[in-house]
Amino acid sequence: MYRALARRDPAYEGVFLTGVKTTGIFCRPTCKAKKPLPQNVEFFPNATEALHGGYRPCRLCRPMDGTKPVPPLVEKLRRAAEAAPDGRVTDKDLVAMGVEPTTARRQFKAYHGMTFHAYQRARRMGLALRDVKSGKPVIEAQLDRGYESTSGFREAFARVFGAPPRGAQDAACLLARRLETPLGTMLALADDAGLRLLEFVDRRGLERELVGLRRRLKCAIVPGSHALLDQIATELSEYFAGRRMQFTVRLAPVGSDFQLRVWAELRRIEPGRSRSYAEMAARLGIPKGPRAVGRANGSNMLAIVIPCHRVINADGSLCGYAGGLWRKQRLLEHERKHGPA
């Protein structure tokens, strides 16, 4: 996606939006503004997620606009929301601006497909998360973003981020980071115990995995920084460049005793090699258990670093991979090319 951004490739219009950390804005892939450095960008699938990330739309490329010109009233509303200290524009404020609230809501929704209130809520919540992550007391973040009710703020925050705002400060949380790879965006989650999850964001069942991790570890999942996330980002980059085939990042997989045994055996498969489910079951001392091994294989939440992609059918054909068979094939080809002779 960064290469598409650098080329201003129109083929990626509608595929992703780019958040620029240094300016706090999000842009289309074809934006004509000066291109940011790779470490200063993050990518989003749509405008709502970019707003939840705390970004505002770029005024040059207008990423929330369709092909038709933006109505003057819609532009006026967006500017008002950005200028408001707490990001909140009430109906009373609209009347003071000479704008009829019903007309404003109708035009905004007709143009953007989301209500003006939804736009404001998404932006305010994104800014609130940034406040809490930076160490600001929750009550200050609440008041600064225009929430008079503590319970209302907690409920709104939890709806968006899956946890109340206090969870963004407490130690009991998993820190999340999106990682860009040649095979697509991945999501990494880590805490001090180790890397808990590494999955392609379009993986089937990813949302279910996140809910399960939150429940089992009794924690929140929030965007953040951690040394282990930096390490896996570096090691993945080296892996895809062909300079590394073994990962050293500390892992802390969450699973049953049997699943942990299967995953440990997966890590013994050398890069460039593969095994069948029957071979895996035999090595684990359960020759009649290929199906159980297959289920444990499919439950692995640490893609690539616990190499479930190295398990294939007995006849050598590829079999199920939640990240997509095309990725499994690419990973195996990559490891055969760069793995040990």
Rank of each mutant, 00 (worst) to 15 (best):
L251V: 12
L251P: 10
L251H: 11
A252D: 12
G255P: 04
G255E: 08
S256Q: 11
D257Q: 13
F258E: 03
F258Y: 14
F258K: 03
Q259P: 00
Q259K: 08
L260M: 14
R261P: 04
V262W: 03
V262A: 08
V262M: 05
V262Q: 03
A264W: 05
E265C: 11
E265D: 15
L266K: 05
L266N: 05
R267F: 15
R268C: 13
R268G: 10
I269E: 07
E270Y: 09
E270G: 06
E270C: 06
E270K: 06
P271S: 09
P271N: 07
G272N: 02
R273Y: 11
S274W: 13
S274V: 15
S274L: 14
R275W: 15
S276K: 08
Y277C: 13
Y277Q: 11
E279L: 05
M280F: 14
M280D: 08
M280T: 07
A282D: 06
A282M: 12
R283A: 14
R283E: 08
G285S: 11
G285L: 07
I286E: 02
I286Y: 06
P287C: 07
K288E: 15
G289E: 00
P290Q: 03
R291H: 13
R291C: 13
A292G: 10
A292F: 08
V293Y: 01
R295H: 09
R295C: 07
A296Q: 02
N297P: 02
G298C: 14
S299W: 14
S299N: 15
N300I: 02
N300S: 06
N300H: 07
M301Y: 07
L302N: 03
L302I: 12
A303L: 08
A303C: 06
I304Q: 00
I304G: 00
I306K: 01
P307I: 05
C308G: 09
V311K: 07
V311C: 10
N313D: 14
N313M: 12
D315E: 09
D315F: 06
G316W: 06
S317T: 15
S317L: 12
S317V: 13
L318P: 02
C319V: 12
C319D: 13
C319L: 10
Y321F: 12
Y321Q: 03
Y321W: 11
G323H: 01
G323F: 01
G324V: 00
G324C: 10
L325R: 12
W326F: 06
K328I: 02
Q329K: 09
Q329M: 06
R330N: 04
R330H: 06
R330D: 05
L331W: 01
L332I: 12
